[in-house]
Design a protein around this nucleic acid. Sequence first.
DNA 1: GGAAGTTTGTTTACTAATGAACGAATCCAG
DNA 2: CTGGATTCGTTCATTAGTAAACAAACTTCC
Lengths: 192, 192
Amino acid sequence: MDRRILKSREAIVEAFVALMAEKNFEQITINEISERANVSRGTVYLHYTDKFDLLDQCIKSHLVELIESFLPCGATGIFPSKASLLHTFQYLGQHAFFYAAVLANKGVPMFRYRLQAALLRGLDKQIDMNGINRDMNKEMLIQFLTSAIAGMIEWWITNSMPYTDVEVVEQLWALMERNQMVPQPFDKGMTI
Amino acid sequence: MDRRILKSREAIVEAFVALMAEKNFEQITINEISERANVSRGTVYLHYTDKFDLLDQCIKSHLVELIESFLPCGATGIFPSKASLLHTFQYLGQHAFFYAAVLANKGVPMFRYRLQAALLRGLDKQIDMNGINRDMNKEMLIQFLTSAIAGMIEWWITNSMPYTDVEVVEQLWALMERNQMVPQPFDKGMTI
DNA sequence: GGAAGTTTGTTTACTAATGAACGAATCCAG
DNA sequence: CTGGATTCGTTCATTAGTAAACAAACTTCC
């Protein structure tokens, strides 16, 4: 890909996200975006039809990344696994600026919904309905899981990540075990 | 000016200076520069005939800035003044990365010479030969001043600025007063 | 309500940047 | 010495980005 395209897109998105952290989506103008991005206004229209399209593409690409953070280590393991959960929260921590901006921005409702929808799409493909989940209703299991995780994500990001990614995943995993949503740990007193 | 030109030049110079801080000038290639600058190799040749030209333009523009730092507050005051000296060292502190790179780089001799030559050019125009300097030989005065200042600059930068700009100027100014190179302070016991 | 000023989205002609190709020069290992 | 690999400096056709202009749709404020 022509590096000019990548550089322009990157500059525009970066400026846009920075502005979203400062003010509501509605009161952001294309003028501001192009100025902040140090790019001609025409260039913005060259890549995005309007600021709604820009927002949409931003959210889409980030949610694709989020889904990909589930399964970074090749085909190793099935979700839900503690390792893949940790990857996701590590990714979120690295892109907290964006997620905080869209979650907090009053001009961007629906993001919470799209977040959960993305989790659902990602989870649906790779969840293992054998073993522990054999007798569960998949639809309900996924709904429960994605709600829980989305809620944790929203809380963690909007509260400025008050705990480390490891700590959050530790807690979340414990809750999932308690609710029999994941493979149970071996009982310490158990004999084989 | 077309912002593409500014952006390309900026990226190239930034990459070049960063590389100079890492390795000798001779072993820096145009390939490396264009890669680091995230710019096509042809773009480098579009702005600079070769890496010597790049180095030359870098040094030239920085020395112009250095001279301009002498007289930032309009036509206020004559050099040497404590305020203008401070401006110069403030400027140097802000661009220490570049000056450290060229001063330390074994592939860039002559820089010390050009530094002093720039100081000399800047000083020659605005030094006040009346008053305290009435009976001095201008050529020798300027030679003395520029040597002293250039030496201080080189020491300050290559030693990672071990004192603040204010401290350095304080010391330098005291030395200049002691040598009657600047207007003498009013004697505390003096009556008008 | 209406004048003055923004912002929007589109179009224009122009120019800078791109990547690819090329032969020549230079470097370096075998 | 020799042959493979880099780097050099240049050329080329294509494309992305540019500033400027424009009318239309908005705010804002008197």
